[in-house]
Structure formats: C-alpha cells, structure tokens
Amino acid sequence: MKLIIIIFVILFLFSFFLSLIYGDVEIPISQLLHPNSIYAYILYEIRLPTVLSAIFIGIILSVSGAILQMLLRNPLVDSYISGTASGGAFGAVLTYFLLLFNLPFSWIVFFQPIIAFIMALLATLVTIIIGKRSGFLGLIIGGVLVSFIFSSLVTILLSFMSLKYPQIPPLTFWLLGDISIIGWFDVIILAILSVLLLSLAILNSRIIDLLAISDEISYAHGLNPNNQRILWLALVSSVVAYCVSIAGIIGFLGIIVPHIVRRLVGGNTKVLTIYSSLVGSAILMLSNLISHGLLGYYIPLTAIMSLIGSPIMILALVRRNASAEEY
C-alpha cells in the first residue's frame, strides 16, 4: 500500500511539473524558477492559475463522486447526478443570451457565476423534491431527467446565438468542459471550496460509512439516511455549481477516480476521499494538458475522460451484475 501511495504522489508531482511547462507556449525548465518578462507573464498570469484550477476542480469532482457513491451505494453515480452541471451551464448560457439579444435583465451577465450557481441549485432542488417523493432511486432517475432538460435548453440557446455571434463560448465548452484562462479570484474561490468539501468529508467520514453500510444501522445510531443524503447532495451540488460556471461540464472524473482508488487502496470514506483528491487532481491536470494541444490540436476534456471512464464503468456494471447473481 505504501508503494501505491508513493506512486500517487509521484503522479501528482509529475502532472504538476508537465502542466507548468507545456501548453500553447512551452516554458523552458530554466525559466520556471526565474522567468523573464514574457515567460513570467505566461507562468504567473495564465499557466499557474490554470494548473491550480485543474487541481482544485479535480479535488472537488473526485471527492464529490466518492461521497455520493458511498451515500447512494451505487458505483455509477457522480456529482452531476442531481442535474447540477446542466443547470449551471444553462444559467451561464442564459446570461449571454439575454445580453446578445438585448432582452430584459441583460445586465445579469456581469454576475454570470452567481446566475449559474442559482440555476444549478434550482436543478438540484427539483431533483431533491423528486427524490423525497420516490426514494433515492427516484433521486437518480430524477437527476438524469433534469439533466436532459437543462442540456436541451443549453443546446437550443447556443444554436440561436452561434448563428449571430460565433465568437461566444461554443457548445463543447459548456457540455464537454474546458479549463483555459482562469483568473486568480476564481482560483481562490476554488481553493476555499475544495478545502471545505474535503474537510467536511473527513470530519463526517464515520457518518458516511454508516450510511454506506445500511439504512437500518444508520437509524440505530440516530441518523436519518434520507435527510443525510439530501443534505450532502445539496452541499456537493453547491460546490460543483461553481466549477461548472467557470469550466463547463467535466464528465466521468467523479466516477472513475473513486473506482481507481477503491481498487488500489480500498479503505473507508476518509481514505477514499483523501486519495481520490490526489489522484483526481493529477488525472485532470494530465487530461487538461492533452486537451490543450499536447497532441497538436484541441480535444474537449469530457471526450478524454470518456475514453478513460467508459471501460471502468463497464467493468463496474459487470462486477455489480456478477455479485447480484451470486445471491
């Protein structure tokens, strides 16, 4: 196990080092510690904020996926199960739509992250209402339906706008994710949110472990499992909403990372969340590096994640069905 942990740390450091060097402009290794004027601007104003954002977004999505998989006892869910991502993307695109077509309330484009956050919470609230009436299976199905609705609305709005204003962020950004130029303000907010989520997960790991075992044991310890699930879903959705507002929807990361850690390290919620944050941030840094020109052209982040995540999801489904047949 110590060897695996060392590999995780090396993977993280290796990903961080490569991400600082490579991009649209390659920064020589000699310029990393004492960069001159042009390299200093690229490193401190573009490359470093982007890499740090990838780290914090990777932590948020990976830890969120690990928490929800434990709470819902389903290895195929992640932080987007509540429709949060599609709701947030719709809120952000809506602000562009109101501005470009001179519609009422067009001024809200200046508060785009806040509007995206509000719409993400609205999508989550609708999913929670569905889940309260039909149990946590209904929560999953409701989240998928809500996600489809908001994704369709995003597609419709962008179809109208792209005809008149081709310079706006394309559909691939909102639905397939992209971490490009992000300011230091967003980096600070992401850092606070990632530390908050990881800290709460570690402090409440015993509670999540009980919920992951069975609802009966949770009730025996004075916990209401449905209330706990809704509480955590609201928290996770709130944190993920900010990620979506600045980087679009980055799929599969919250699914594949907990599986990798669970297979290699195992352990309880505390162990799972700590190492998921390390592996998730490393994978997202490497994926973003591939996305932004390492192969010579741009590839959406979710396309890269899908190639990694689909075999893992298939394996999880096969093992889940095999386990069910044994009983």
Rank of each mutant, 00 (worst) to 15 (best):
L20W: 06
I21V: 14
G23S: 06
A40M: 07
P35D: 09
I29K: 14
A40D: 14
I46R: 06
I27D: 01
Y41N: 12
I46N: 02
S30H: 13
I21T: 13
Q31Y: 14
V25N: 09
S19I: 04
Y41W: 09
I38N: 15
E45D: 10
L20F: 02
D24K: 13
G23H: 11
V25G: 00
I38L: 06
Q31F: 08
D24M: 07
N36D: 13
S30F: 09
I27P: 05
L18C: 12
Q31T: 05
V25C: 02
Y44I: 00
H34F: 13
I38E: 15
I21L: 09
G23P: 04
L18R: 03
S30P: 01
E45T: 07
R47G: 00
P35F: 10
L18K: 03
I29F: 15
Q31R: 15
L32C: 01
L43Q: 10
L18W: 05
Y22Q: 03
G23N: 09
Y22I: 03
S37L: 11
H34I: 02
L20C: 10
F17V: 02
L43T: 05
P35H: 13
F17Q: 11
I46D: 02
A40P: 02
I42Q: 04
Y44W: 10
N36P: 02
I21P: 03
L33Q: 13
P28D: 08
I38G: 03
Y39T: 04
F17L: 06
F17P: 01
S30R: 14
A40E: 14
I21Y: 08
Q31M: 11
Y44F: 05
N36Y: 02
I29G: 06
Y22H: 06
L18G: 00
D24S: 14
H34L: 08
H34M: 09
Y22K: 12
F17N: 09
I42A: 04
P28L: 03
V25W: 12
L43A: 03
L18Y: 06
R47H: 06
I29S: 11
L18E: 02
L33N: 09
P28F: 06
G23F: 11
F17D: 07
Y44H: 09
Y44R: 05
H34V: 02
I27R: 07
E45H: 11
G23D: 06
I21A: 07
